Structure formats: structure tokens, C-alpha cells
Simulated scan of single mutants.
Amino acid sequence: MRRNGRALLFAGLFYAPLVSADWQVNLIEGATEISRSVYNLHMVIFYICVAIAVIVFGVMFWSIFWHRKSRGAKAAHFHESTWVEIAWTIVPVIILVSMAVPASTTLIQMYDKNSAELDIQITGYQWKWRYQYLNQDIDFFSSLSTPPEQISNEQIKGENYLLEVDKPLVIPAGKKIRFLLTSNDVIHSWWVPALAVKKDAIPGFVNESWTRVDQPGIYRGQCAELCGRDHGFMPIVVEVKSPEDYQMWVAEQASLKVVEQQSAQKEWSQAELMIRGEAVYKASCAACHQLEGQGIPGVFPALVGSPLMSGDSAEHIDAVLHGRSGTAMQAFAEQLNTVDLAAVITYERSAWGNQGGAVTVQQIAELLKE
């Protein structure tokens, strides 16, 4: 029995580093100069606090042990000691100054948003992010791309479960990027630990932050504000590309915009709209109305058998385009393109036994012009 105990202890000691690798409790150094400065500042403050704790508790326990009553020790009586007064004033001042100097230096760096080479407006929505590249014709929404089947435990969870998106934020390496953050509905918080960026997105306000990443790579984060029922399904992915690859990406976005405009002129069949609409529905609607359109009683209405799905398409279209005031139903006119709007409305009206029929891309396009 004793031998088994020693074997278990040895195994525990051997595997402890492997286990702790997945149990990260400290800050990470990150991928930017600012994130490394924040990490170094954190460690300096931490070691100062450890040193204070060791000295204070060391003196306290030493006094308790060596000057206990059982040894016949008697407490000294003194007060108004000038040297004690000087010591407990000067020592804390020195400690505070040793903390304040590096902290102030780091804070000044963090709030220096001047000389940015690219400005990006980030807008929080329930539950996705909108990225608008100012002075560039790039504007898109970034939504969770983890399959609903993984969330409902019907499939094995992927490596980046709940931390993957359909369209990441793309920025160039080695460039200073300024972020302008706001919100369309409730308070969100844009947080990417590796970049040491965590800023609230507040309706009616614009907050600023910035980053400069030297090495290309993919960095993941999350909304750090409890923003609603699906708060945990609002990830952030930042893809840093080399300057050359970034310019290729910008050119690709321009090409995609042309393709999107051309697709809006195409005659789409109902079958084609249904296939595309199912994908759009899973990405933008299933979080509230559920995969099979059953909704959540008392929270989100069911689409299966809903009079809205079988009635006049104009009312259904208006609800999707402009949302419903006083409810969680968002306006999707800005979030989805013309084809995706027609596709998802057609899918909702024709799936799960609904008999509402299709709407056309041209029909949506005409309404968007009004």
C-alpha cells in the first residue's frame, strides 16, 4: 500500500508540469510590445507584493514564535518614536514610487493613439462584430462559425470551439492600427489577450485603442462584457498578415464586392435560395430561433407554423430588414447583403413545413432602395 502511494506521488510530480500547461493562471506575454510591457509590469508588481508578504509575515511569525507568553516574553511599551514614524512613511513611499514609475510609463504607451496607419471602427451587435475599415471600402460582419451541432453536443467539439468566426478581422503586421469602438445595442467589450487590447463598446460613445503586431499570426479573443443570452457565442479572431499579403487581401475584398454586385443581378431559383438560406439561417438566426425554428418559449418566437411565415411576405420582410422595436429581433438590412436576405427569408418561409413561398432578390433590392 505504501509502495503504491509513493508511485502515485511520483506520477503526480512527473505529470504536474504537463497538467499545469493547460491550467494557465498567469498573464500571457502576448504578441505586441505593449502586451509584453503589461506582462513585465504585472510581474514587477507581483514580486514586490511577494517580497512585502514574505517580510511582513516572516517578522510576524518570528515574533509570535520567539516572543510568545510561554517563553516569558513581555510586550515592550513605547510610543511616539520618531524613527518608527519616519520609517513607516518613507518605506511605503519608496514602494509606491517603484510601482508608479513603470505603471505610468506603460499607461502612457497604451494611451498613445497618435500616428496610426490604419483606422478600423468596431461595432458590437448581439452577438457579432462589425468591422469598418475607414478610408477603405471594406465593411463586414464577423459571426461565430462553430457548427450548431457541436454546441448541442451532436458532434465532437473542434480545436477552437466557440473561438472561430466566419470572417476574421485582418490587419497588416508592423503597422499601428487604431480601433474606434462603439455598440449598436448593449454594452460589449472587445478583448484580445495576446494584443493586450480590452475596450468597452458602449452605445452612443466611441472609445479608442490601438495595437501593432510585429509577426503574422492568428489571435483569438472574446466579448468580455455580459451582453445577453448568447454572450459566450461572440468570439473575436484577428488575423495578422504580412504587408504584401494584406494588400492582396484588400484587393480580394474589392473583387468579392464586384462578385456580390453581380450575384444580385442573377435570377436565383428557389432551390438555390434554400441552400444558401439554410447556411445564413444557421449563422445569423439559429442562436435565437433554434436550428429547427422551434424558438424558445417565452423568449424567442417559433418560426415553425408561424402566421408570419405563411402570411403576407411584406410583413416578414419588414421584420427581417428593420427588426422589431422593443424585442431582441435585430435589423438585418445592414448585416446581410441582398442575396442573403432573400435567401434566409425564403428559407424561413419554406422550411420545416412552412408554406409561405419564396421571395426574390429583386424584391429585396427594391425595398432596400426606398
Results as ranks from 00 to 15, higher is better:
Leu367Trp: 12
Val359Asn: 00
Ala283Arg: 14
Ala342Lys: 04
Tyr47Phe: 13
Thr123Pro: 04
Leu256Cys: 03
Glu164Trp: 01
Ile45Glu: 10
Trp62Phe: 10
Asn153Glu: 12
Ile236Ser: 02
Ile151Met: 05
Thr89Gly: 15
Phe179Asp: 04
Val91Glu: 04
Arg229Lys: 08
Pro92Asn: 06
Pro235Tyr: 08
Lys69Pro: 01
Ile171Glu: 04
Ala351Asp: 00
Glu239Arg: 14
Leu162Pro: 01
Met1Ala: 12
Glu348Ser: 12
Lys157Phe: 08
Val93Asn: 06
Glu370Pro: 00
Gly228Cys: 09
Thr346Asp: 01
Leu256Asp: 13
Leu96Arg: 03
Ala251Asp: 14
Val97Leu: 11
Ala73Glu: 03
Gln121Pro: 02
Gly228Thr: 09
Glu366Gln: 13
Gln253Ser: 10
Glu149Ala: 12
Ser142Asn: 09
Tyr246Ser: 06
Leu181Cys: 14
Tyr47Glu: 06
Pro172Asn: 08
Thr211Met: 06
Arg324Cys: 00
Glu154Leu: 09
Ile275Asp: 13
Ile86Ala: 07
Glu292Gly: 15
Glu208Lys: 14
Leu144His: 01
Lys369Val: 15
Arg130Ile: 03
Lys128Asp: 00
Tyr347Arg: 07
Gln363Trp: 07
Ala21Arg: 15
Ala76Trp: 08
Val165Cys: 00
Ala100Glu: 12
Pro148Arg: 02
Val339Tyr: 05
His77Ala: 11
Ser242Lys: 03
Cys227Ser: 15
Gly293Glu: 04
Lys199Val: 15
Ser269Trp: 02
Ala287Tyr: 04
Glu208Arg: 06
